[in-house]
Design a protein around this nucleic acid. Sequence first.
DNA 1: ATATCTCTGTGATACCGGTCACAAAATAGC
DNA 2: GCTATTTTGTGACCGGTATCACAGAGATAT
Lengths: 229, 229
Amino acid sequence: MTKFKELLQNSFSLSGLAEEHAHGLSEIAQPMSLKSGAVLFKAGDPGNGCYAIIEGSMKVSVVSVDGSEQLLAVLGQGSLVGEIALLDGSERSATVTALKPSQLAFISKAAFYRYADENPAVYRHMLQIVATRLRRSNDALAARSFLPLNGRVAQTLLQLSETFGKQVDNNKILVHYKISQAEIANMAGGARENVSRVLNVWKREGVISRLSGYYCLEKPEVLRAAAEL
Amino acid sequence: MTKFKELLQNSFSLSGLAEEHAHGLSEIAQPMSLKSGAVLFKAGDPGNGCYAIIEGSMKVSVVSVDGSEQLLAVLGQGSLVGEIALLDGSERSATVTALKPSQLAFISKAAFYRYADENPAVYRHMLQIVATRLRRSNDALAARSFLPLNGRVAQTLLQLSETFGKQVDNNKILVHYKISQAEIANMAGGARENVSRVLNVWKREGVISRLSGYYCLEKPEVLRAAAEL
DNA sequence: ATATCTCTGTGATACCGGTCACAAAATAGC
DNA sequence: GCTATTTTGTGACCGGTATCACAGAGATAT
């Protein structure tokens, strides 16, 4: 078995798929790699398949005419990306860009359906993934309408901690991912300057801290309270 | 065949499902009806199945602690509701309320999976529905960050026209659904008063009109342009 | 090390849109 | 029909946040 297939199987297992299907899918996937900053596809492109992230990380975003950007998600190893267009047969709904050098596995629409028709577990798994994303997206939308900026920043930090967090001490969480204020602002949907202000207030209050470039959530409860709908 | 099953089959066919599966699903569904204003379930409830709307209409919303409400969708005949919790096994992610007296068909989680495992077309169809919803939700989120209020109202009107629109004349669309400014405001994420102002500007410009309580999109292009990201 | 570039912090100002307060109009109920 | 209730229209005011404008701090590169 190639190194790629092994990684790929791990990736699929990571995402919660049973061993046998992780194997089956790895058979039909095409390897590909992207340099940091490379665009996988843009909103509006035709979509004929989806990708599994084997290594690296990608951002999913929507860009407006004036160039400003809304990040929908930052995805890492084991995540699936590009599934919406595959499933509803329409064009790509967002732009996906590599944040680091990344290894992907492409699964074509035809191959996906061919395999899944034989293995309904794959359908169930896919439904799970998409449903969870829908739930997230709805939550973000609700946050947008109910929470002021600091609440949305809190939500963003907590979300990042879900994907990249490492527990340290008792209930302190280190977000093991280099992220700039500008990116946090794009996720939280606010101006970078204001995000800076919010973060500094929390820094002074000891709610968060920065350890060698990484954010550390010192008092996650405070953030959770701020992100409460 | 009972009246209920007949309606149900129609409903499923309406949503684009093949005849045979519309029939099959109608066999495993439980009929139920709701009065106007009745709550089908609330966010946080356990979720053990989903519902097809056979007759009537429902709103899907998230409510904040202070009582304000964000509408995620207004769904009518032929739509599925409550599928997120069914699919990801978590609690209900939003609250669903009947807007009119409604007829529903309940499909339990067990019955759904039992049937779908035998008929992968059902899985494909469900994936389509959920993917489209995710696309919508992402669009709404992007709109929230990029568009000013009038753009969001435009987007909301267009969305309603997708579900309830009837083409009249050349490219005029009648939204065949009674809806108040307050509800539009809840979907667009703005204050009712400001939505009123926006609508009136368009009414004066002949972009929209009201025909016996229904909104009519006279110049959908203008709305589409306003909702452009 | 020095220059360059990107990130971060902070004030000042402007504006969009939320809130309050009613009045007018439309609907529903009797 | 006539009232009660819900919707709708509009002005005035205020607050959160975007925007502008830099200055300092950290990175990166040569």
